[in-house]
Design a protein around this nucleic acid. Structure first.
Lengths: 339, 339
DNA sequence: GTGAAAGCGCTAACAT
DNA sequence: ATGTTAGCGCTTTCAC
C-alpha cells in the first residue's frame, strides 16, 4: 500500500503542491472553491500528512513532552489525562518522560531527549517545575515551557497552580466549624514544597480562630503510609490527644486510620481524620477519607492550552493561572464530642 | 544557536556525510579509527541527530505508541513504566494514546494517529489486545504490534501474558491449605476476559480439593468497590456464610472489608478476604489485603523488547511469553477457625 | 490567489 | 572501507 503524498493530492486536485500545503496549514490566500476541491481530494485519496516531513521542513515536531517524577502515582495519571485531552485536540502527540528527580544527570539526560525528539514544548510537573537548573537550560534553548504546580513565581515562565495554603486553610476551618479545637497536623516530606504550604494554611486557620498552636500536635511525616502510622501512634498516646488529625496527604491519613482501628479508636466517632489529594485509596479505605481534591486534570488541560499558544506564538492572557481546590467531605470526619 | 548538522560533523571530522551516518546507525564497514574520530567530533560539536530528518529519510519515526483504556488506573502506570524503560534504552520515544474502548470510532480515530505520527510499532493493552477489528487494521498496514495481557492466542501476533487461571488457582489453593472450605468468590465485570479466567482457577482448585462448588457462594460483581460491598452483604447474610471470600480484584475486596468492618466482623479472625491485582489501595486499607501481584511492568518490558526486535526485523524467540503472577500474603487472611 | 524552485537533515542505493 | 547522488514529503521563499 503506497503512501499518498502531497504530490498525489496536488495532481488529483489539479493544483500545486503549495496550495495543498496552504490548505493543510489553514493559511490564508486560498479561494474557498480551491479549498473545497482540495479537501475533497484529501477525503477521496485518504490523504494524511506525514509528521516527519512536515517537521523537517518547518522545524517542528508536533510532539509535546511531559516530564514527571518516575515514582509516580495517581497525580501523574491525572496530569496525563489533561495534557492528552488538549494536545490531541490540537493535533499534537504526547511523549512521556518520567525521570528520577534525585538523579544528578537529570538535566543532561533530559537534554538528550530534547535534542533527539525535537519537542515543540514541555510540560513540567512538580518537583521539576521548580528546578532552576532545568528551567535555565530550557530557557537558553528557547523551548516553550509551562509549569504545573510550581511554588515559585518566575518571570517569563508561565505556570498553572492550585492554592495549597488556601485548601489546607479551608480544611482546618471546616474542622473548627464542626467543633474541633484539638487539631493535630502531620506534615509531609521536607523536600516537597507542598509540605510548607499545607502547614501554613493550618497555622493561619488556627491562629484566626484563636486556637493555640501546640508543639506536640505538630508531627513530621514524609508522605508515606508508614510515617502516618508512626505519627499517629505518637499523637494518640499523648496525655491530651487531639480530637482531629489533619494529615498532609491521604497515604499518611490511611496510616492513621489503620492505627486507630488497631487501637479500637472509632473513626469518626472518637477521632476525626482528614487527608489531602483525593488519592484513589481515600475512597477505598474504611471509613472513607475527608480530603482535598486538587484540580489536577484541569490544571494539565490549562497548562497544555497555554503551551500550545506559546508554540503557535499567540499571546498569553495571563502568565499564571490558579485553579481552586475542592474540599470533599466523606466518612472520616464528624463533629467534636462535647466533653 | 545554530543547529549542528551532519554536514558540520562531516567537515569537522574530515569525512563524508555517509560515514557519519554509518557511525550514527552503528553500521559495519567503518574502521575503528574513523569511528573514533567521528565520535570525537560528535562530542566536541555537541551534535545530536534530528529525529525528523532521520525519520523522513528512513521512513521510521522512533516513536512507539501505547494504546490503553482511558479510564485507567495503576495497571497503566506500571505498563508505562515498563514500556518506557525499554523504549528509552533503545532510543525510542513513547507516545501515549488512551482511548475509550467502548467508542464506536475507535479504529478510525486510532488510524488517524497512526498515519500522522508514523508510529514504528504499537503496544496494545487489554482490552485492546483482543480487538480483532483493530488487529486487522494494524495487520493490513503491516505495523508491528505486541499485545499485553491478551486472552486469545493469535497466529502471527506476539503477546506477553500472565496466567490468571493459575494465579487464581494458587490463591484458592492457599485458602484451602490454611483450612478454608467455605470459600466464596466475587466475579468481575462480564466484559472483561480476566473475569472468566479467575473464575476458572477458583473452580479448578475447589474441584481438586473435593469441595463442592455452591451457587450461593458465587456472586457477580463488576470490579467496582460498590459491587464488592453489595456482594459482601449478600454473602455475609447467608444462613451459612463463607469463611473466606476471594474477590476478583482489590477494589471489590476493599468493599468487602468495609462491609465487614461495619458489621463488626473481624478480618481476618472471623473472615478471610483476598483480592487480585495488588492495587496501591490494597496496602493502604486496614487490614491490608492478601492479593495477587501481576508482573505488569515486567510484561511491558518484555513486550517492548519484542516490539523493537520486530521493528528491527530481528527474529523473535517465541511468539508468546508468559510471566508468573505472585501471591502476596498480607493481613486479611488467616487460618479458618475450627468449629 | 497561486505556483516554481530550493532545501530542511538525513539515509538508500549505488558507486569506487 | 568510504564517498556520491538522489530523494524522503513537506514548507519556505519569492515570483507571478
Amino acid at each position: 500500500m503506497k503512501r499518498i503524498t502531497i504530490n498525489d493530492v496536488a495532481r488529483h486536485a489539479g493544483v500545486s503542491k503549495k496550495t495543498i500545503s496552504r490548505v493543510l496549514n489553514a493559511e490564508p490566500n486560498v479561494s474557498s472553491d480551491t479549498r473545497k476541491k482540495v479537501e475533497k481530494s484529501f477525503a477521496e485519496l485518504g490523504y494524511r500528512p506525514n509528521l516527519q516531513a512536515r517537521g523537517l521542513a518547518s522545524s517542528q515536531s508536533f510532539l509535546i513532552g511531559l516530564l514527571y517524577p518516575s515514582q509516580s502515582n495517581s497525580y501523574v495519571s491525572n496530569i496525563q489525562k489533561g495534557a492528552l485531552e488538549r494536545s490531541r485536540a490540537e493535533g499534537f502527540h504526547l511523549v512521556i518522560y518520567p525521570e528520577d528527580h534525585e538523579n544528578e544527570n537529570l538535566v543532561n539526560n533530559f537534554e538528550t531527549n530534547l535534542n533527539s525528539a525535537n519537542l515543540d514544548g514541555i510540560i513540567l510537573t512538580p518537583p521539576f517545575s521548580d528546578m532552576t537548573g532545568l528551567l535555565n537550560v530550557l530557557k537558553k534553548r528557547e523551548i516553550p515551557v509551562v509549569r504545573v504546580g510550581a511554588l515559585s513565581v518566575l518571570d517569563q515562565v508561565p505556570s498553572v497552580i492550585s492554592n495549597d495554603v488556601e485548601a489546607s486553610y479551608d480544611m482546618c476551618r471546616y474542622l473548627i466549624s464542626i467543633g474541633h479545637h484539638k487539631i493535630a497536623i502531620i506534615k509531609g516530606h521536607l523536600d516537597h514544597g507542598a509540605t510548607e504550604q499545607r502547614f501554613k494554611g493550618y497555622k493561619k486557620a488556627l491562629k484566626e480562630a484563636g486556637i493555640p498552636i501546640l508543639e506536640q500536635y505538630i508531627q513530621q511525616g514524609n508522605f508515606s503510609f508508614e510515617s502516618g502510622e508512626d505519627c499517629a501512634r505518637r499523637l494518640l498516646s499523648l496525655p491530651s490527644p487531639p480530637s482531629a488529625i489533619f494529615a498532609s496527604n491521604d497515604y499518611m491519613a490511611a496510616g492513621i486510620v489503620k492505627v486507630a482501628n488497631q487501637k479500637g479508636i472509632s473513626i469518626p466517632h472518637d477521632l476525626t481524620v482528614t487527608g489531602f489529594d483525593n488519592a484513589p485509596a481515600s475512597r477505598y479505605i474504611w471509613p472513607s477519607l475527608t480530603t482535598i481534591k486538587q484540580p489536577i486534570t484541569e490544571m494539565a488541560i490549562e497548562a497544555t492550552r497555554m503551551l500550545i499558544r506559546i508554540i503557535r506564538k499567540k499571546p498569553l492572557e495571563s502568565l499564571s493561572i490558579t485553579i481552586k481546590n475542592e474540599l470533599i467531605v466523606r466518612e472520616s470526619s464528624a463533629p467534636a464530642k462535647n466533653k
